[in-house]
Design a protein around this nucleic acid. Structure first.
Lengths: 146, 146
DNA sequence: GTGCTTTTTGCGAACCATTCGCATAAACTT
DNA sequence: AAGTTTATGCGAATGGTTCGCAAAAAGCAC
């Protein structure tokens, strides 16, 4: 049975690698390792963290290669780059768009999607005379008391 | 008649300076110049741009002071810091809540409000069982070709 | 497989926005 | 005016990210 995420998107290494070859990229050992590490990461690792994890598999991998690989994957739309306020960029495999609601009391992160939200922001952009190509949205809140 | 921004918020230098003294900060010529330049900026200038503008009034102002002043004002909540994707941070006097659409081709920032968006995200939070207390939202796009 | 061409790699140096250390110079206090 | 505190300008340091280059590996044709 194929592995899927909570929204039902199928994810697989071979699919990621296929996309890379389709884009004319060569499949190197380093890229395979980095992709695998990224795909297995449940969190949103920084480049440095990612590099450390990759080095545990192949200690010769340099951070420059990690940067280059992530840049490439990001251009292909396979990987999402997040610029959180506190310094360095963080990455995750793009498993389909979802948003985050951070519980301000527990720190827990709730993921959700909303077609309605996507539709509305596209409409807002269009009303302003723009074609939206990207957006960021994050919520902070606490559980409703009954 | 008091000057107001496009959303009707009253803004004034003296108010900003008063907040600074209340916070125990000394009012220096540099701070007055930086504050004035920021307050008169209709755009969302980068630190470097801000520094250039300030230097036209007082050429001895250093970029380190501009950074320090903006950091201070940001801590006081008088100034908003935005980390748009394109490298350097950009600032604006806090005139109340609105959103930003960044033109990916020109770097220009379009401001907008949407009651509909506010209503929708509150509803989304409520549906998830949460009371929203804060959120971030930013759009990136380019002008529609006709 | 063996060549040949193109892409990728690791390394360190370069880059760039931002921050720091420090001695000097202002601002507030009395 | 004198004393205390905070702010400034300078240049050097920092830290994440990118670049240049020669060496290594990948893909392709035979």
């Amino acid at each position: 049975m194929a592995k899927t995420d909570r929204f039902g998107y199928k994810i697989s290494m071979s699919m990621l690698l296929q996309k890379c070859t389709e884009a004319g990229l060569k499949i190197t050992d380093q890229r395979k390792v980095i992709l695998k590490v990224l795909e297995e990461s449940e969190d949103h690792p920084s480049v440095e963290t990612l590099c450390e994890r990759a080095r545990q598999v192949d200690s010769s991998i340099s951070i420059a290669t990690v940067y280059r690989t992530l840049g490439l994957l990001n251009e292909l739309g396979l990987v999402l780059k997040h610029d959180f306020k506190d310094s360095s960029a963080r990455f995750e495999v793009d498993h389909g768009h979802h948003y985050h609601l951070v519980d301000t009391e527990t720190g827990q992160v709730v993921e959700f999607q909303s077609e309605e939200l996507v539709a509305l922001i596209n409409k807002i952009a269009a009303d302003l005379g723009y074609q939206m190509v990207d957006h960021t949205f994050e919520m902070f809140g606490h559980k409703l008391k009954k």
